[in-house]
Design a protein around this nucleic acid. Structure first.
Lengths: 156, 156
DNA sequence: TCAAAAGCGGACATAAATATCCTGAGTTCT
DNA sequence: AGAACTCAGGATATTTATGTCCGCTTTTGA
């Protein structure tokens, strides 16, 4: 509801790369398979994350995608800004064209603090904090059994 | 982002009816014009709100739509349940198939309290509280100038 | 009784998000 | 150099949400 599939796939992929990308680039195809997400579509998303400066792509043999910088420098807000567009932070609950503090919709005073908390969460959470939560073992990234175990057989 | 256009139109319409529906049913066409929303589309939405039990429709001359019960008994959650479907309260931030307290996604512990607050807001706010906020004059329902003034000339 | 008014509901149209396909360009290993 | 591999990116397809159209039924007032 809050995030599009595109954003969800993007976050999942980046966290996956943060977890498993230490010894070289990861294949788009492999990431898609691990996350159980359409491969060709994910390829487009990874492309846009490259343009957005979060990923670096490598072509040819041993190619793939790797993070452009330290994962703890990449907040979820940076990801969302790329995948949802910059308007994300400005939208009104009731969909009014203009809804600022001055000309507010009737939900504004109730919605505003909640929205701020959402933004704060997106700013404070980054690829490392999420990846750590996964590594702890308490939380999952995907539905696929063992999808986060490096010892699982390689995707063909 | 959080709510679809359909839900936004639905809430706006219901509040409009709560504000102006005291002396008889209101026309779908008039509501749409006041809110600046596509008329034929809104008609469908009002229809589904009838099926959902929030509105009563009246055909023929002097027909239109009126609330089925007291506006303070209609929480926004009731509206959203009709327009977004029941899954709304269960969705995961990262889009995982199953994301409960037991098998949680990595965002779960951060997202859960925020989500609960959103639900709480939707439960506690009802057509009367929102309508009152509009009546106070501090907040708007629409972008149309004077859209909430009954003395504005009738929509033809 | 009849015409006008209003919602009903099915069919259709458009737009945006999601998903797929294919060819080309860059890279690496032999 | 050549073969195998991988991303780039344009074209296309599918799905879902949104939006439109029109003939039908119901209701009311002249």
């Amino acid at each position: 509801m809050l995030l599009s599939h595109t954003s969800q796939y993007a976050i999942q992929s980046l966290v996956y790369i943060a977890l498993h990308g230490d010894d070289g680039p990861l294949l788009s195809r492999e990431i898609a398979a691990r996350l159980g997400v359409p491969s060709a579509y994910l390829a487009k998303i990874l492309q846009s994350l490259c343009k957005g400066g979060l990923l670096i792509s490598h072509r040819g043999r041993l190619g793939g995608f790797s993070l452009s910088e330290s994962p703890d420098k990449m907040s979820l807000m940076r990801v969302i800004n790329i995948t949802e567009g910059a308007g994300f932070t400005k939208e009104c609950l009731l969909g009014l064209k203009v809804c600022s503090d001055e000309t507010a919709c009737p939900m504004h005073p109730i919605w505003k603090p909640i929205k701020e908390r959402i933004m704060q969460m997106m700013e404070s959470q980054n690829l490392t904090t999420v990846a750590d939560a996964v590594r702890e073992g308490k939380y999952r990234l995907t539905d696929l059994p063992g999808s986060l175990c490096p010892e699982m057989e390689t995707v063909k």
